[in-house]
Amino acid sequence: MNESQFLLAIAGGLFTIGLLGVVIRRNALVMLMCMELMLNGVNLSLVTFSQQRGDAAGAVMVFLTFVVATAEVALAIPIVLLLVKHARSLDVDRYSELKG
């Protein structure tokens, strides 16, 4: 197993842990943080590939991911605050009345 395979394995592990966290946890904030972890895993794989190819395109993608992650948090946290004010809980099961 060479270096980039090891890094890609770490990236896959981070993504899987993040996905598991989003699926199995009930706390809305913890789910948000697990989404950040998934983005981090993807970032690591992008950087690995771009380093391997010696191409700057992957690094550009990483920057775009940074921007998207920041905007996501800036939007998601006010929504979570609204939901908490509404349901008095961080438990996503309490938000079931939002079903369309």
Partner: peptide, 30 residues
């Protein structure tokens, strides 16, 4: 994120479940 966690301070009821009902399928998919 840390700021929001400190701001919210919503205490979950003791004995509330930590995991959703999708634990088993979630772990399988993972």
């Amino acid at each position: 994120m840390v700021y929001v966690i400190m701001l919210l301070e919503v205490k979950e009821a003791p004995g509330s479940k930590r995991f959703s009902s999708y634990v088993v399928p979630g772990v399988v998919v993972g």
